[in-house]
């Protein structure tokens, strides 16, 4: 009986996730009347705006991951090593992006960094990109922090650090050569979530007027019928493809299996 319920749950879950995807794929192939075709995909891929916005969002996603890792790994490591009593506070802070809407954050940015402020970041494309990057890193913070913190919990951080120190290692080497490689699996899961969030993010990119993929999808969805479905399928495949690539690169870089 228990088995039956397990299978029922698996089938229900699969249908919940797969049916919309199958429906979207099927719909995206029906652009030509009376037969299946890839016309919608051809149309999307031929649009230079697609390439520009998708490329922009991929670059922003990768930068967000790098920024997230640079902020989160040393912070989570230091909290575990030296400030364990601050963990609840840090956890609370990292949860804030889940309860503060992105629109509040982006209006805060616009208010603080507009062209008449001390730091007029919105005055230039580079400055606005930087703001958007910070916004994305903030949005990804809850997922990245939790993933990294969980990864760190599997390590005896203190002993590893002290062993490395007694062998003459400094902080950069300890974090870069010992801690990061041992939580890379966790970092990759955080990176996956960050990537997925950034690729589809609309609010921040739209309000900061950046050429990102989220606003492009919205624009296309408002004006076309079949192309948005094709776009969603392409985005889905590209996101998974990018993640696979990241996994591959991390393995090629010599990331090895760690302790069980």
């Amino acid at each position: 009986m228990k088995r039956l319920w397990s299978w029922a749950a698996i089938i229900a879950g699969s249908l919940y996730f797969l049916l919309p995807l199958i429906g979207t794929v099927e719909f995206s192939l029906r652009m030509r009347r009376g037969e299946y075709s890839l016309d919608a995909y051809r149309s999307v891929l031929a649009d230079p705006n697609f390439r520009d916005t998708f490329g922009y969002s991929i670059v922003m996603a990768l930068l967000t991951i790098v920024l997230g890792v640079l902020i989160v790994v040393p912070t989570a490591y230091w909290v575990r090593l030296r400030l364990p009593r601050l963990r609840p506070v840090i956890e609370f802070i990292t949860l804030l992006p889940l309860v503060i809407p992105a629109i509040v954050v982006v209006f805060g940015y616009i208010r603080l960094y507009n062209t008449s402020s001390v730091l007029p970041l919105t005055g230039t494309a580079g400055g606005t990109n930087l703001l958007l990057l910070c916004g994305y890193a903030t949005l990804a913070l809850p997922y990245m922090y939790r993933a990294v913190d969980t990864g760190l919990s599997t390590l005896d951080v203190r002993s590893l650090t002290e062993a490395a120190q007694s062998l003459g290692a400094g902080w950069v080497r300890i974090i870069g050569r010992l801690i990061l490689p041992n939580v890379l699996g966790a970092v990759m899961s955080g990176a996956f979530l960050s990537f997925a969030i950034v690729i589809g993010e609309f609010t921040m990119a739209a309000l900061l007027n950046r050429p990102a993929f989220g606003p492009y999808m919205q624009l296309l969805g408002a004006n076309r019928a079949y192309e948005p479905a094709a776009l969603a399928v392409i985005a889905f495949a590209a996101t998974w493809g990018c993640m696979g690539l990241m996994q591959l690169i991390s393995r090629l870089l010599g990331v090895r299996k760690t302790a069980k």
Partner: peptide
Amino acid sequence: RPNQRQIGMVFQSYALFPNLTVAENVGFG
């Protein structure tokens, strides 16, 4: 600082670096 003292230490929990081989662990210092 600990990394300036030229001291070798062995811990109760071994504290071997899990991402490095035995030879890399021994050669780390």
